[in-house]
């Protein structure tokens, strides 16, 4: 009786634990299911490499290269901002800050990481864009550059937190050993701590990148929304995420446009999947290197 009950509980938990797997598989299945009809009319090559995105024209065209380029463009810009700021802040918090400062700064950064993306988008729209437009004499403030800045700032707390974790994995004995042979703190930092934490910090950067490329609301509100090939950082662009968010409302369910938006979702999913797997591989190696097991 009691044994049976134990078995039943074990089964219930086993089944419920499969939920995550089921959802992940479900996401993949539905993305494929809703996007495949498109490829009956549009070859995969034309979809990925076509430079014209006119989903609602009479002669609709579904080339998403401008959208992919826009996503990469904006993400790259965001990285330029969030990597130095994020890693620099993490180094400060972990290596320079006093215990009291750290006890204050660490949670503060974590709390700031929870600011919703729509707030960044809103701020970018009403404050950052007009400000940058005036400052740089741009035709419009809503452009790839502003989006990069907002996205970059948004990713800083995430990168800081993960990089900080990576730094705290570096055993103190490494630091002590370096200081004991007469290196100063800066040399210890750049020549011992950073290389040891290197792949952990790479993980932070990749995860930050993955978050930036999948980020929707900020770019939707700030990037300008023109679905053409960007020529400079100051052109308005339309990244993949904002295309989906902006157009799904007007796309009729079951239309080619609808299918095309799901296809973009699929590409987006695959890109972030690759980033996440990459991050996992690197972080596993990182843990092995420091002898932390697993």
């Amino acid at each position: 009786m009691q044994r049976l009950r134990e078995k039943i509980y074990r089964w219930i938990f086993t089944i419920l634990a499969f939920a995550s797997l089921i959802f992940l598989v479900g996401i993949i299945l539905f993305l494929f299911k809703e996007s495949l009809p498109l490829f009956r009319y549009v070859p995969v090559g034309d979809f990925l490499l076509g430079t014209a995105w006119y989903p609602t024209h009479e002669e609709a065209e579904f080339g998403i290269l401008p959208l992919i380029v826009a996503s990469l463009w904006v993400t790259l810009g965001a990285l330029v901002i969030c990597v130095p700021l994020g890693v620099g802040s993490a180094l400060y918090i972990h290596e320079l800050a006093s215990a009291r400062q750290r006890a204050f700064l660490k949670p503060l950064i974590e709390i700031l990481a929870s600011i919703p993306s729509v707030v960044y988008g809103f701020f970018g729209m009403v404050i950052a864009a007009p400000f940058l437009q005036q400052l740089l004499k741009l035709p419009t403030g809503l452009c790839a550059f502003t989006a990069s800045v907002m996205l970059g700032i948004m990713a800083v707390p995430t990168v800081t937190s993960i990089a900080e974790d990576a730094l705290s994995c570096v055993p103190n004995s490494f630091r002590e050993a370096s200081l004991a042979v007469g290196a100063n703190r800066w040399q210890t930092l750049t020549q011992v701590v950073l290389p040891a934490a290197g792949s952990g910090i790479s993980t932070a950067i990749i995860l930050g990148m993955s978050r930036a490329i999948g980020e929707t609301m900020t770019v939707l509100m700030v990037a300008g929304g023109a679905a053409v090939m960007p020529r400079s950082f100051f052109d308005p662009v339309r990244p993949m995420t904002s295309t989906i968010a902006a157009e799904m409302g007007e796309a009729a369910v079951g239309s080619l446009h609808y299918n095309a938006l799901f296809s973009i979702g699929l590409i987006l999913f695959l890109i972030t999947l690759i980033f996440n797997i990459l991050a996992e591989i690197i972080s596993r190696r990182f843990r092995l290197k420091l002898g932390l097991g697993r």
């Binding site: 999948g214 972030t272 996440n276």
Partner: peptide
């Protein structure tokens, strides 16, 4: 799959919710 689910962009969750 838990790790990967954590990395899926939020707009893709939106698509999934819409479809499912």
């Amino acid at each position: 799959s838990i790790n990967n689910l954590a990395g899926v962009p939020s707009v893709v969750f939106g698509l999934f919710g819409l479809a499912l």
